[in-house]
């Protein structure tokens, strides 16, 4: 019988491998926006989130305000709040407040997906295993990507710049095929985002994402409200 920590580590191996290549792309983007490899790894270690970090370095590069940074992270990472609500109802009795404070750090889309697929209640040690190996993969990939700028030819690192965005496409398209609501939300968000980029360039990147996302999600919620069962499965992508 393996200890819960080891089970968590093993369940986290596929997450870590996936993170390795995605954060490689983040490392490349970060260095290209003028950050050092060390700063890139620190950002990965303290944030552990792909979309939020990608938006964050764009704001840093553009010299955006702190308010813009805070609001952008709030909107982009709002989904974690929903995952936290869901996971908080699946914790065993050993989860006292300090452990909750610790494990909360590691709630990502993929960790949420694996943790919520577990049978029965979650132990803190299982979550430590799952989170620590995933985080190791995320930071190692960032370091490799950030250092690769000097080691790999530009043609290769240029091509790696698309990795994160391609992953976002892979998250959105499958549910958009099945749900008219998701499709409508994605199309609205894309249209809004293009309008901001090409017609209202005075709205900076972070706010453009916030406005686009809120307009699209509110439209979706009004026109295609989801059934209760659907919204609890929400974010298992």
């Amino acid at each position: 019988m393996k200890s819960p920590f080891v089970r968590g580590l093993l369940d986290g191996v596929p997450i870590a491998l996936g993170y390795l290549s995605v954060s490689f792309g983040f490392g490349i983007l970060a260095v290209r926006s003028g950050l050092t490899a060390l700063t890139s790894v620190i950002i990965s270690a303290v944030n552990l989130t792909s979309a939020g970090q990608a938006a964050g370095i764009a704001i840093i590069a553009a010299g955006g305000s702190y308010i813009e940074m805070a609001l952008t992270q709030l909107v982009i990472n709002l989904r974690y709040g929903l995952m936290s609500i869901s996971l908080s109802q699946k914790l065993d009795d050993t989860f006292n407040t300090p452990r909750r404070l610790l494990v909360a750090y590691g709630i990502t889309d993929e960790i949420f997906a694996v943790a919520s697929a577990q049978k029965g209640l979650l132990t803190s040690r299982y979550m430590y295993g799952l989170i620590s190996i995933s985080m190791a993969g995320w930071c190692a990939g960032t370091l490799l990507g950030a250092s690769a700028g000097q080691l790999l030819p530009a043609s290769l690192t240029d091509a790696m710049g698309i990795v994160l965005y391609a992953m976002f496409i892979a998250i959105v398209i499958p549910p958009a095929k099945k749900s008219r609501g998701v499709l409508a939300v994605a199309v609205s968000a894309a249209i809004c985002s293009m309008i901001f980029k090409y017609l209202l360039p005075q709205v900076t990147g972070g706010f453009a994402i916030i406005f686009s996302a809120v307009i699209a999600a509110v439209t979706g919620a009004l026109v295609f409200p989801v059934a209760d069962e659907e919204s609890t499965e929400v974010v298992s992508q």
Binding site: A186, S193, V234
Partner: peptide, 21 residues
């Protein structure tokens, strides 16, 4: 129901807005 629907759609809205263009 509105708030749950909104939260359900937020990830897709955010990821699409970040990706395009």
């Amino acid at each position: 129901r509105f708030f749950r629907s909104f939260l359900y759609y937020v990830p897709y809205a955010v990821l699409t807005a970040m990706t395009i263009p």
